[in-house]
Simulated scan of single mutants.
Amino acid sequence: MSEVDNSDERLRVLLQERARLLAFVERRVGSREMAEEILQEAFVRGVEKIAAVRDDESVVAWFYRLLRNAIIDRRRRHVATERVQSELAREWEALAEANEPDERERGEICTCMSGLVDTLKPEYESAIRTVDLGGGTVADLARANGISAGNAAVRLHRARQALGQRLRVTCGACAEHGCLDCGCRKSDERRVRAAT
């Protein structure tokens, strides 16, 4: 039997075992969707290496070892991703705490900002109100929205960028140069426009 014929036969055997292989992975990862992904990746890797299986070795036993390694690799990647996201969240927390205004400064923050927060996307508004205006943490934001701390940190960063852009458009030079005087001419003009 040629190597190609042998590989085709081995692949046919694996495909016949697909349901059992999928069940094996699903029991270990707890998700049908993730199990499908892992099995598919393992089949791709397995097809490339199936010719190297020794004739005296069961192709099914060989593939189970391949699946175990694929599951371990997926877990390692997941743990590494979570670690990076947690570290990012800690860095954001430290940065936010270092730049946290005191009570006096909070009272001086331009009232323009408060009105502009309402114009942001709802998830950005929530991020600004939870962390910057409400004194919450990135972890609080993550819990409230059912997302990871890393995703919450990214959301807060994007919300701050969006708010900064709105402030620059609305307040012009005041926002660029750090003017906190809401009694400025632009602010007065906005109040008059809003009242009419």
Rank of each mutant, 00 (worst) to 15 (best):
W62V: 13
T119V: 13
W92A: 10
R143D: 03
E97H: 02
A98G: 06
R27K: 12
I71L: 11
E125Y: 06
A153Y: 03
A144Y: 00
E125N: 06
V47F: 14
G136I: 03
V53N: 07
G115T: 15
E48A: 15
N145G: 01
A98I: 02
T119C: 13
L133T: 03
F24K: 11
G178I: 05
L22D: 01
F24R: 09
N99Q: 07
H177V: 13
S86G: 11
R28Q: 14
M34V: 14
G150W: 01
A96S: 08
F24V: 11
E108T: 13
G107M: 09
A70Q: 13
V84C: 00
A153W: 02
E97T: 04
A70W: 12
S187W: 13
A23L: 10
V59G: 04
L141T: 04
R10T: 02
R20M: 03
R74C: 02
R129H: 01
A159D: 03
R77W: 09
R75P: 00
R193M: 07
A139I: 06
C184A: 06
E103Y: 01
I147W: 01
G134F: 05
K49I: 04
D118T: 15
E125C: 10
R185C: 03
R75E: 08
E17P: 00
L88T: 13
T111Y: 05
F24T: 09
A194Y: 13
E105P: 05
A175Y: 08
L14M: 08
L116I: 15
A175P: 07
R193Y: 02
R12T: 09
R143A: 05
E9W: 11
G30M: 06
A42H: 07
G146Y: 00
S126A: 06
E37K: 15
N151M: 07
S148V: 03
N69F: 07
A162D: 03
A94Q: 13
R191E: 13
E37G: 13
G172Q: 15
T130Q: 01
Q40G: 08
E87A: 14
N99T: 07
C179L: 04
R32I: 12
E33P: 05
V192A: 13
C184K: 09
A51T: 12
L133N: 04
A35Q: 14
K186D: 02
G178T: 06
Y124A: 08
A19S: 04
I38V: 15
E82Q: 10
D102M: 08
N69I: 06
M113S: 12
P122T: 15
F24I: 12
L156F: 02
R129E: 03
D73T: 04
R12H: 07
E100Y: 07
Q40I: 10
V117W: 11
N145A: 02
G146Q: 01
R10H: 02
S2P: 11
T111H: 08
R129T: 02
S7Y: 04
R193D: 08
C110D: 08
L95P: 00
L180S: 05
G135P: 05
D140F: 03
G107F: 02
V169P: 00
A96V: 09
E97K: 11
G136E: 03
G134Y: 07
L14E: 07
R155K: 05
A19C: 00
S31K: 10
E87L: 14
R160N: 04
C171K: 09
E123Y: 12
R32C: 09
A152T: 02
I147D: 00
A162C: 06
R18C: 01
